[in-house]
Amino acid sequence: MSATTTDTSVSTLEPTGRARQLAAIRRLRALRWIGGQFFLWGVILLGLVFMVTPGVWMLLASFKTQAEISAIPLQFWPTQWRVNNYVETIEVMKFWRVFGNSLIITSCVTIANIFTCTWGGYTFGKLRWPGRDIMFMVLLSTMMIPGFLTLIPRYVLVAKLGMLNSYSGMIIPFLTGTFGIFLTKQFMLGIPDELIDAATVDGSSALGVYWRIILPLSKPIMAVLAIFVFDWAWDDLLWGIMILTDRLKWTLPIAIANLRVQESNQYELQMAGSTLAIIPVIILFLALQRHIVRGVALSGLKG
């Protein structure tokens, strides 16, 4: 009897007890989730501040006076926005000249790579010919060879070819790249052979297939290639200071590096020059950021 009474008392209590318990667990979980998200966002925001602050500071400094940049205590905002810094920097750096050189060289290298790498990807990925895989392995092995190993012989070669102080000396040694060929070859595995066979049956030559099928279908990988080659070529300093000794042939990185020597005490000019140098990259980034991040993940995983 007593057992049954306790039984009933428990059974009458149980539903509300369990419900309360469940509610408590749910509340705890929600709290923990909120706490977790709070922590994660705290870390993310801290990181964002760390990533963005130097750039913001550079932009602000480019409008300040020398005294404001080196003021103690820190002066974050310029008292007056001195656009004149830019006018002066453009003159000191011979900016338009240098910018034009960089643009010509980088564009040529980028466009060349788009075509040569897809060409290579097609040759080693889609065409069938004896010796293909061995030749590809030979090419791939050069990925293990860092650029600096051949730096000096390449310089000597370019000098002997009479390409010092010329655009061609900056372009011709960089017309193609193993990694780009490798990347496009991987990409082309996704292009169905049937498409190519059908075109061949219709009388297309290998060249026609490359032009009419491979190129149009390779647009996504071409975008990725273009971004990385552009970004890399735009930032090249070492090869530039070796090849280009004539000031009028200088590229942007050389002119920027030179600002530190030539205008060692004019911080506002250094910052204005740096800001000018990153503008094209920022534009490229904003326009293509989706491709960029996806491209990094892609090349990272496939490489």
């Binding site: 964002l48 140098a277 991040v293």
Partner: peptide, 12 residues
């Protein structure tokens, strides 16, 4: 935003 500095020129 985290990726932006990767793209910016090292010289600058």
């Amino acid at each position: 935003t985290y990726y932006l500095p990767v793209m910016l020129p090292m010289t600058a």
